[in-house]
Design a binder for these strands. Structure first.
Length: 334
DNA sequence: AAAAAGAGCAACCGCGGCATC
DNA sequence: AGATGCCGCGGTTGCTCTTTT
């Protein structure tokens, strides 16, 4: 006994949308929105279409700021990296590519990128972004563990104290990796003989990971740092790994350093801001509460320090137990 | 020039999860 | 607590256009 159909298929039009239908749908949504109910929308908008079809048409084609056309190399790189990290969760990947839809990315992957990977994986020792994603193409691989799906671990939209918007953050979704380090590491980093720290990168000028965007922190590291702050890998009772950009690691490092040295005042003055770290996760990641506790860099407080001086200032404050010295997995996206 | 094969992509389908009753 | 309805997602289909034979 299956689910009842969402609409009467014999009474709705199917197949390609005409310009007239597009105009009706666009006009209606621009005036009234979808009213929180796609099923009833077609009737109100004067369309003989299934509500799901309307939703799809709007989200994938008519919505403002949709980007059509060729993907850039940077977008390729982001897709490869995220695919390597989280697999075929297209909506999450799409959230990191403004203007691109999950459907677009999925199609692009199936028609272009997968072939690119196949050719890349056949060449033996590639360190390319494409090669990083190859493990997913071989589900029987003994070397690689796929992350189990979020639905099997935690609800995808359940509260996550590390993020302000759980629906769009990669960090929230990386919680799907409910596995231990030994499983995660070879999966995520199949092309590197060992893992790297941020310090390795700066001191050795290690070209192998030039272009990396950040690191995957395993839950052991998160647990370690939970001694200093509320920064912890425990989310809703589930252990999880966290992806962080280099500057985010530096900021947390500095925060911990200050606390270790006895500073226990309010970390309210912002050198945290979106301009620097690119997304809004860090604030709650550091504070654990989502209320205040931003890090105080100790500068003028303008919050507008340039990213480079800001990072170098932070790097000078590294402690011996620095986060920056931990071996982590490099990852590659914007 | 015509047929076949391949590529690209919009749209459909059904399932899982969440919200509500 | 269970039933129901809706949304969102990922896999798949099938149409159209292009390339190859």
């Amino acid at each position: 006994m299956g689910r009842a159909p969402c609409c009467d298929k014999t009474k709705v039009k199917r197949g390609p949308w005409s310009p007239e239908e597009d105009a009706k749908l666009r006009d209606y949504i621009e005036k009234y929105g979808n009213g929180g109910n796609w099923i009833s929308l077609p009737l109100k908008a004067g369309l003989r279409r299934c509500g799901k079809s309307c939703r799809l048409r709007w989200l994938n084609y008519l919505r403002p700021n949709i980007k059509h056309g060729d993907f850039s190399e940077e977008e390729d790189r982001i897709i490869f990296s995220l695919f390597a990290a989280i697999g075929s969760r297209w909506s999450i990947i799409a959230a990191h590519l403004p203007g691109r839809t999950d459907n677009d990315i999925k199609n692009y992957w199936n028609t272009k990128l997968r072939k690119k990977i196949m050719s890349s994986s056949s060449s033996s020792s590639s360190h390319s972004s494409a090669a990083m994603a190859t493990p997913f193409l071989n589900p029987n691989s003994h070397d690689v563990k796929r992350p189990i799906t979020p639905s099997a671990t935690i609800a995808p939209f359940s509260y996550n104290p590390y993020v302000e918007n759980s629906t769009t953050s990669l960090i929230s979704n990386i919680n799907g990796f409910e596995a231990d380090d030994q499983q995660i590491f070879p999966f995520f980093n199949p092309n590197y003989p060992h893992d790297f720290s941020l310090e390795d990168m700066s001191s050795n000028n290690n070209n192998n990971i030039s272009g990396t965007s950040g690191f995957l922190l395993n839950h052991s590291m998160c647990d370690h740092y939970s001694n200093h702050t509320n920064f912890s890998s425990d989310v809703n009772g589930k252990r999880s790994e966290i992806m962080m950009k280099q500057e985010e690691m530096m900021m947390i490092d500095h925060h911990i350093d200050q606390m270790t040295k006895g500073y226990n005042g309010d970390f309210t003055q912002g050198y945290y801001n979106n301009d620097i770290n690119g997304h809004g996760d860090l604030k709650q990641m550091i504070s654990g509460t989502g209320t205040n506790s931003n890090i105080n860099m100790g500068g003028s407080g303008s919050g507008s320090a340039s990213s480079s001086s800001f990072i170098s200032n932070l790097a000078e404050n590294k402690t011996s137990s620095s986060l920056l010295k931990h071996k982590c997995l490099p990852y590659f996206y914007s």
